[in-house]
Amino acid sequence: MSDNLKRLSDEGVSIWLDDISRERLRTGNLEQLVKDKHVVGVTSNPTIFAKALGKGSAYDDQVRDLAVRGVDVEEAVRAITTYDIRWGCDVLRPVFDRTDRLDGCVSLEVDPRLARDAEKTVAEAKALWWMVDRPNLYIKIPATEDGLPAITRTLAEGISVNVTLIFSLERYGKVIDAFFEGLERARENGHDLSGIASVASFFVSRVDTEIDKRLDKIGSDEAKALRSKAGVANARLAYALFEEKFATDRWKALKDAGARPQRPLWASTGVKDPNLKATLYVDELVAPGTVNTMPEATLDAEAEQGEVRGDTVRNNYDDARAHMAALKDVGVDYDDVVRVLEEEGVEKFEASWTELLGTVKGELESKRAGA
């Protein structure tokens, strides 16, 4: 049992694993992480599934059956991914029950090629929700401008949502508003608000990657001194916005009707710069009522070398604002940074999905040829 991870949990940070595979499920590894490393949730994405499919033989029987049935590649992807997610939900169900539905959840992403089409995103979200058929499922929907109405409409259907790909504070404010509206509609539709959950996934390390690149290009001593601090500052200001928005009368009315807050989730918390401490985006973003979803390497690093020293967010708002102001002073355009990051994020999501489709197609063709 890791004391660092226990301390993190005791500070109100829910530890989620950013990975899933049938091998991890079949061997009991996920159950072991829940037991030994305080993992209370799981997130997935197309790249994770593509890598899982490319290793070992855990998927062979299902892929062979899908090939024999002549299932097309997109339906095969749904069948394969929902099987793992359903299994993951079942593994985490005791956590879901023990935490009174706060944690113990698994996230599954809608086809990111639909990110700019709200109608299709909602239809896909409903289909995945039906296919997995577990109350501890989150459907991941990107926080693009076109994704905002899809988030609202999906929540209004009583479906829990992991809002992903958030970079900017302005967009995060709109995400919270979409969450409020979704719950208001859900209440009108007769849904029990206490059964609808949501997290807002604020991406961290990618902010530093993009801003550090611009700071290096500027090249001044002042610019260099600002490197690798924007991701944390941006996330801290997101938490300040969370506190502000969830102190309004609009939220109080929803809370009185049984709603639970949409928790901030720190995503992309594995460091991209090898010169940075591996636990930077964990230790510096400790605050109550948050989620940190970590790749296993970051989880292990936190267990071994983490420095959990209490709340590192709420007493640092002024420093965060000062840092963002200093970035502006040296010539970093924040609005352009978050625009580029969102565009690149959507492109990366689509590329990952294409990779997953290609992997599954190759597996299907291989099994058909060997039949």
Score class of each variant (00 low, 15 high):
V291Q: 00
A322L: 04
W130I: 14
W251T: 01
L327A: 09
V42L: 11
W129F: 12
S201C: 12
K51P: 09
I176H: 00
K272H: 04
V13G: 04
R236C: 00
V337G: 02
V338A: 10
F246A: 06
S228D: 14
I166H: 03
D212Q: 08
H191M: 10
V360L: 10
L155K: 03
F203S: 03
F96N: 01
R250K: 15
K126H: 07
I166N: 02
K217S: 15
N315F: 01
R236S: 01
A127T: 04
V91M: 05
K126Q: 14
N29D: 15
D318Q: 08
T279C: 12
L92Q: 05
K367P: 02
A326P: 08
V338Y: 11
E365I: 07
F179C: 07
P135I: 07
G56C: 12
G345R: 00
D65H: 08
V13L: 07
N162D: 13
D10Y: 01
A225K: 11
E145V: 04
K277C: 14
L53A: 06
W266R: 00
T47V: 14
D256T: 03
T354P: 04
V340Q: 10
E347I: 05
R321P: 00
T144M: 06
E157K: 08
A123Q: 12
S168F: 07
M294H: 13
R7I: 04
D273R: 06
L341H: 06
L108G: 09
